[in-house]
Design a protein around this nucleic acid. Structure first.
Lengths: 189, 189
DNA sequence: GTCTATAATTGGATAGAC
DNA sequence: GTCTATCCAATTATAGAC
């Protein structure tokens, strides 16, 4: 209910009713509305973190790795779960700054670090030319989801067609490769 | 107060006190809390729209035009005004969907359309190779601000150093040009 | 530990004098 | 048109029985 209606609009009465227990039971277990909210958000952040773990750095060629990572990222960042989580955290950001930090670290920041280390490795082995891996990683992910995520957060289009997303992913990967493939690699084409 | 505290947390009592008038005066003029909020948001959207108007399509070389547009976009999208506006709209998105649509049209969507038509023109004249101008424009802006805007919306870093932003802009422009400059133009380098 | 009933406060909105 | 004072509903949180 926090994620669906926002922190302010969700009342403890309604939550207790939905949970099938009395309010007092909730207060005994969590102490306050804010503490309950924190517990829920923390759990959701953990859930968010898990599917992004496989770095799969060594396997396959660059294009496949980037495409696979891009799919995972867009799926995660545009999932209803993630969207409602960010929506409520943004709305309540000034009120609960620590939770927002945890969510960011668990999602986009982790993804950027993973990709950055991959780019660094590929840069060392001469396949790619990436001056600043961390910046390039952030811009790659931004290219994929930046505008769409904002649209979705504003509630303007809750769902995107898979075709459209696949097109965006392919275009982004192609752009990234044209921009960062090293000259020696390019000559092979 | 709506922008600073959010819709729910801002009380009509506090607003009236801050405005130096009585509550009844506000209700006479606007009718309800929601209508007052709508009026304020609409005005803020108009303010947001104004500085983005100059398309400046014909002048200068491509790199300069892109850099200039990128600067305007990042400045707008990361300004405290814009951030607080989006923050409150995202928080209240499900409650007031029309306002969110107006804000998006007035900002990112307009910017993307402007750039897309410029890219299309440059593509016709053979300077750039852009298969889908609209998608390329969205991805260019996403590259610039996507991650930073999310960070700022979450309240994780309200201000970014100018050096850092300039670096991000230069990198993004360079990547975009390497990815989309036509082969004939590239040969001239 | 859990439920019912109840504070105590606060919010949006209104009535009536001037 | 504006202010003072007030209504009514909803909300968080607690007290006390079982």
């Amino acid at each position: 209910m926090f994620l669906a209606d926002g922190y302010g609009a969700a009342s403890m009465d309604a939550i207790a009713r939905e949970a099938g227990v009395s309010k007092q039971t909730i207060y005994n277990r969590f102490g306050s509305k804010e503490a309950l909210f924190g517990a829920i958000i923390r759990r959701r952040c953990d859930d968010l973190l898990s599917p992004l773990s496989p770095p799969e750095c060594g396997s396959g060629d660059v294009k496949e790795v980037l495409t696979s990572l891009a799919r995972k990222f867009t799926t995660m960042i545009l999932s209803p779960t993630s969207l409602s989580l960010y929506r409520v955290l943004i709305g309540e950001a000034s009120h609960l700054p620590q939770l927002a930090a945890i969510a960011y670290q668990s999602g986009p920041a982790l993804a950027a670090e993973t990709l950055a280390s991959y780019l660094w490795a590929q840069s060392c082995s001469g396949v790619l030319e990436v001056a600043s891996p961390r910046l390039a990683a952030e811009q790659f992910f931004g290219m994929l989801a930046g505008q769409k995520q904002l649209q979705a957060l504003l509630g303007l289009s809750d769902e995107f067609s898979d075709d459209h997303l696949e097109d965006a992913i392919d275009t982004a990967v192609a752009s990234f490769l044209r921009a960062h493939r090293s000259d020696s690699e390019r000559r092979r084409d």
